[in-house]
C-alpha cells in the first residue's frame, strides 16, 4: 500500500495498531466513542472532548487511594491468640530485615514508587494541559510516563494478596484491612484509566492544545487578522 503525504507531519493521521502492527488511517468519530483496528479489533483511539477534565478527576482519585493503601494495614491474622498485621511498607521493611534487599527493592518500586509516580505525573500533566502551559515539560512527562507505565504492578499485587489469603485460610483467622479495599478501588481506577486514556491520544491532545494557543497568539497580532481554517 502506497501512502501519499504532503509532509512528514501528515503521518499523524495514520496509526499503527499496537497489537497487529498494521497501518490504519484515522477517521473522525463521534464524542465518547472509540475507533477499532480494522484487522484485529483492538481499540486504537477514543474521542472525548472533556478528556483533560476526566483525566484530572481520575488521576486525583487514584492518587488519594494509592496513598491511603500505603498507610493502613492490608491484612491482619490471628493464630492461637497472637495477632499480626502488615502494611505495604512493613512488608517491604521486613524483607529488608531478613536480607532480601533485591526483592524488597523490586517491591518498593513496582507497587509503591511507580504507581504513586504515575498518578502524580498524570495530575501534573493534565493540570498543564488544562492551563495550556509549559509544553516542553508536558512532553517530557509523556515520555517518562510511557517508560514507567509497564512497570506498574498494583493489579498483580492485588491478585497476590488474594492468593495469600487463600493460602492462609486453614492456618489462621483472617481480617481484611482498609488498605485492601483502597488498593482494590485503586486497581479499578487504574484499569479504567489504562483502558480509556491512551498515551497516543494525549500526544494528539497536547499538539492540538498548544498549536491552538500558538495560533491564537498569532491571530492576536494585527498583521494576520484573516481567519484560517483549522483542521483538527
Amino acid at each position: 500500500m502506497k501512502i501519499e503525504l504532503e509532509d512528514e507531519n501528515d503521518l499523524d493521521h495514520y496509526i499503527i495498531c499496537h497489537k497487529c502492527h498494521t497501518v490504519q488511517e484515522e477517521i473522525a468519530i463521534s464524542d465518547g466513542s472509540k475507533a477499532l483496528c480494522s484487522m484485529c479489533k483492538m481499540p486504537l483511539y477514543r474521542y472525548d472532548t472533556r478528556l483533560v477534565e476526566h483525566g484530572l478527576a481520575l488521576s486525583i482519585t487514584g492518587l488519594i487511594f494509592i496513598v491511603l493503601a500505603n498507610l493502613f494495614p492490608l491484612i491482619k491474622i490471628e493464630i492461637l491468640g497472637t495477632e499480626s498485621y502488615i502494611t505495604i511498607i512493613s512488608m517491604i521493611s521486613s524483607l529488608i530485615g531478613s536480607g532480601y534487599y533485591l526483592v524488597a527493592l523490586f517491591l518498593l518500586y513496582l507497587i509503591v514508587i511507580f504507581p504513586v509516580m504515575i498518578f502524580s505525573l498524570y495530575i501534573l500533566l493534565f493540570a498543564l494541559l488544562k492551563l495550556k502551559r509549559a509544553e516542553e515539560l508536558a512532553k517530557n512527562i509523556l515520555i517518562l510516563l510511557a517508560q514507567i507505565e509497564p512497570w506498574q504492578m498494583s493489579d498483580i499485587f492485588l491478585v497476590s494478596i488474594l492468593v495469600s489469603i487463600v493460602k492462609l485460610f486453614g492456618m489462621a483467622t483472617i481480617h481484611i484491612g482498609i488498605s485492601f479495599w483502597t488498593l482494590f478501588v485503586f486497581v479499578l481506577i487504574d484499569i479504567y484509566m489504562t483502558r480509556s486514556i491512551h498515551l497516543g491520544e494525549l500526544w494528539v491532545l497536547k499538539k492540538e492544545i498548544y498549536s491552538k494557543k500558538a495560533e491564537k497568539l498569532k491571530n492576536d497580532t494585527p498583521i494576520s487578522n484573516t481567519k484560517k481554517g483549522v483542521s483538527s
Partner: peptide
C-alpha cells in the same frame, strides 16, 4: 509471573509469630 514473589513477600511479612514463621 511476579505473583509468586509478591505472595512470598506478603506471607513473610505477615506470618512471624512465636509459633509459626514464614521466611522468604
Amino acid at each position: 509471573s511476579m505473583v509468586d514473589v509478591f505472595v512470598v513477600g506478603i506471607l513473610a511479612g505477615l506470618v512471624h509469630l512465636s509459633s509459626v514463621q514464614i521466611i522468604a
